[in-house]
Each structure stands twice: as C-alpha cells, then as structure tokens.
C-alpha cells in the first residue's frame, strides 16, 4: 500500500465526519428559520400592549400569539429529530438566543392572561421542549427569559399609565418585586446571566418610580383590587 493510500484511508473518513457536522448545522439553521418567523410574529403581535388599554385587544393578541406558538413547537419537534444524541451543547449556540426570547414571550403571555409567573415546566410545554429525547429547556435560558420579561414590564408600566390604566403598574410592581426577590436568592457565578441580572435593578427602580408617581397623586386604586 503506497503512502498516498495510507493517507487517503486515514483522511477520507474524516471528511465524512466533517460533512456530517456541516449537514447537521445546515439543517439546524433551516429549522431555526422556521422558528424565527413565528417568534418575530409573536413579538410584533404582543407589542399591542404598549398601544392600548383595551383588555380585549390584549386577550386577542395573547390568543393569536398562542396560535403562533404552534409553529414554534413544530419547529422544536423537527429540531429534536436532527440534533445528535448527547450533542445538545455542541450545537446549542444555534437556538439559545431564540429559546430565551421564546421563554420571555411565553412568560409575558402567562402574565397577561393569568397574572402569575410561569414555571419552567410549563414554559417548556409552551415551547414544545418538554419530554423531548435530545432537547430540553436549559435553566439558564428560562431565567434569561424572565429577566427580559422584567424589562418589558417596566416599559409596559410606563405606557399603561399613559393609557390611563393605573392598576397595571401596581400589579407589575408586585410581580417584579417577587421576581427580584427570587433572583436574589440565587448565588450566580460571573457569567452572562449574572450580568443580565445586574440590570434588573434598573427595571425595578423604573417601576417603583411609576408607582411613586401614582401614589403621590392619589391615583393608586384600592389595593384590594390589585390582588390577582
């Protein structure tokens, strides 16, 4: 066997291996486009909360968003068939960011509909990441989503006042204070989650200032009404 053959025999199988990875990434990228599209649409749909005080419109938006989640779940279903077993963390850069955004959106819908904090299990179900063979919902992604929620809610608090809804900021204030307390229980290491958490205090402050403005002017509704 000539030296050329030796090399070819050693290197040729490698190409297959490299191609495989390439193909997997290509497929993942394509599936992510299918997830990205409804994601964008959910984002756009839910922006309505900053433009209206009308509860029905918001309900309708939540409903529409929930329908769009159908496509998201279909996407993750397909993704689960593509990611090789045991290699979740090799490829998760492809879906991490989208998953965090979707966690945020799921949590926002639940907040709007029910007023409480969605738990990790339910979030996984909404996204279609529960009981999957290769995929799962990473804790970090879920927590990232909650932090994004707090930021959106601080904007929501401001805009609801503009639209004359003085009840909403109190609900938000209570909700985010609890979220804040929850995060403070965690001893996060020095990573991106920690950094993002450090920004939570600005959201808390903003919301407190809105509640302050309402309290000062006696615009705070009867506290009894706020309890969800």
């Amino acid at each position: 066997m000539s030296s050329d053959n030796i090399l070819e025999n050693i290197f040729t199988p490698f190409q297959e291996c490299i191609n495989n990875e390439q193909d997997v990434r290509e497929e993942i990228r394509n599936i992510m486009k299918d997830i990205e599209k409804p994601l964008r649409e959910i984002v756009t749909t839910l922006q309505i909360i900053h433009r209206t005080h009308n509860g029905e419109e918001i309900s309708a938006a939540c409903f529409a968003a929930r329908e769009l989640f159908e496509s998201v779940r279909a996407g993750y279903e397909k993704l689960d068939g593509v990611v090789p077993a045991g290699q979740y963390y090799r490829y998760n850069d492809h879906w991490r960011f989208a998953t965090q955004r979707l966690c945020f959106l799921a949590a926002l819908i639940i907040f709007l509909e029910k007023g409480f904090l969605v738990d990790k299990e339910t979030t996984a179900q909404i996204l279609g990441l529960h009981e999957k063979s290769r995929l799962h919902l990473d804790l970090e992604d879920y927590l990232m989503g909650l932090l994004n929620l707090a930021t959106e809610l601080s904007r929501f608090a401001v805009n609801s006042v503009t639209y004359g809804d003085y009840n909403r900021p109190l609900q938000i204030s209570k909700f985010v204070a609890e979220l804040n307390a929850g995060f403070r229980l965690l001893n996060l290491k020095n990573d991106s989650l920690r950094k993002r958490f450090d920004a939570l205090k600005y959201d808390v402050k903003k919301i407190e200032e809105v509640v302050y403005d309402l309290s000062l002017r006696g615009l705070v509704p009867n506290r009894g009404e706020v309890v969800e």
């Binding site: 900053h50 904007r155 401001v158 805009n159 006042v161 503009t162 004359g164 309402l214």
Partner: peptide, 9 residues
C-alpha cells in the same frame, strides 16, 4: 414614552 407618561401623570 416617558414624555407622554409625564404629560399624562
């Protein structure tokens, strides 16, 4: 948004 908020409040 803050400007509008302030007008309102």
């Amino acid at each position: 948004e803050l400007v509008c908020y302030n007008i309102q409040i």
